[in-house]
Write a protein that binds this DNA or RNA. Structure first.
Lengths: 212, 212
DNA sequence: TAGATTGTTAATCGATTAACAATC
DNA sequence: TAGATTGTTAATCGATTAACAATC
């Protein structure tokens, strides 16, 4: 398989979401043209994107919604269980723990960790909040695959490094910094404030235009 | 000013973050080469990006950190106050309300809204949680610029549409759907689950490789 | 079979990188 | 002035779109 570009990968979850909706509406088949109109992209792009992974469609017919949905799900690694814990049990950490859809998609959040004694012991939808000092033995004993970092950048870096030593290979990082570990460790960043700045850029751009 | 590409705009907040750190370290000047090594991009890209907005540097010297930081801040619309409210006062809404850095950057969160009677009346760092029914008069009376939508997609769409009628021109959307209003309404999406799927894609890609 | 629509190649477009003259 | 480094043009690379033969 050739190297798939980042742009293509970033579009897969969106395809997956639209296909899920079609599936729920009991729509059986869809052509790249119809899907392109729904999603506001070109049909050509859809066909090119999907063909990176092999032929999911059929000439003269289009794509079977359920089949394509399942295949994209597999590509996205949603066919298997993912054990995850959350470091930092503040609002953001708890928001993720409580987000029901993750469970349906094979994500198993088994614990949250925090240093705040007031939070420790509290039960959430993502399991109990435990003392941060327990996390290192916990991830080893429970084969944790993904660690979500929902805490400030200082401790995120420090705890992240220790977790890498414990064998963690994937981080979902919400801390306001670019974490970089050894090359076999995957880090996916979510920088909420940068998203908000993109919004204010566009507001400010619009205001400038209307002034002219 | 020519149309700036989305890719350039998306990089601005990251420049801003690195410059902020340099500034805090009392570093006065930096060349595109040095910055490129720090940020893991090419010096050429930095110069190209910045030159979309005019010459911020000086030949033979480089860039003044504080000046460049300020200018990018202005480009990002951070020079002015932004009045924001949050719809959906669950964990995610409260996480945003409590995120201190927003206040420092000119964001003024004045209220949260929810339909849950148990939450209404509660005080948070982003102001009081009010009844969702009050939001329409509130945004009109208080000149709210940005509405963060931290609630499920069904109500997000419905409430968003009503808010557009009340004059709201910018949404920071966390609901799991692509909201689309009239063309002068700005929507910036944060799809957390799509970010997580990108992570699992990469995990699954890595596992495939190691099998071969 | 005829019509529809994919899979795939070719053409275009845009973004990134390289190179260097301008200039501090 | 000489050295450094930008601003900017040109070259390259990659991604998107268009076109159409293959085929269901």
């Amino acid at each position: 398989m050739n190297k798939i570009s980042k742009a293509v990968i970033a579009r897969l979850p969106r395809y997956y979401r639209y296909l899920d909706e079609l599936r729920q509406q009991k729509i059986e088949r869809i052509s790249s043209k119809e899907l392109s109109e729904l999603m506001n992209v070109t049909a050509s792009q859809i066909r090119q994107d999907l063909n990176n992974f092999g032929g999911f469609g059929q000439q003269g017919y289009g794509y079977n919604v359920q089949y394509l949905y399942d295949e994209i799900g597999k590509l996205l690694g949603l066919g298997i269980r993912h054990k995850m814990v959350i470091v930092g049990a503040g609002n953001l950490g708890q928001a993720i723990a409580n987000y029901g859809n993750f469970k349906n998609r094979g994500f198993e959040i088994t614990a949250l960790f925090d240093k705040n004694p007031e939070l420790i012991g509290k039960k959430t939808a993502g399991g109990e909040i435990k003392d941060i000092s327990e996390i290192y033995s916990y991830v080893k004993e429970n084969d944790i695959e993904i660690v979500a970092l929902t805490l400030p950048k200082g401790p995120a870096k420090e705890i992240g490094e220790k977790l890498v030593e414990c064998g963690v290979k994937a981080f979902w990082n919400f801390a306001h910094t670019d974490l970089k570990f050894s090359s076999d460790v995957i880090v996916e960043n979510v920088h909420l404030s940068e998203s908000l700045m993109k919004l204010t850029y566009r507001i400010s751009e619009k205001n400038q235009k209307s002034k002219q």
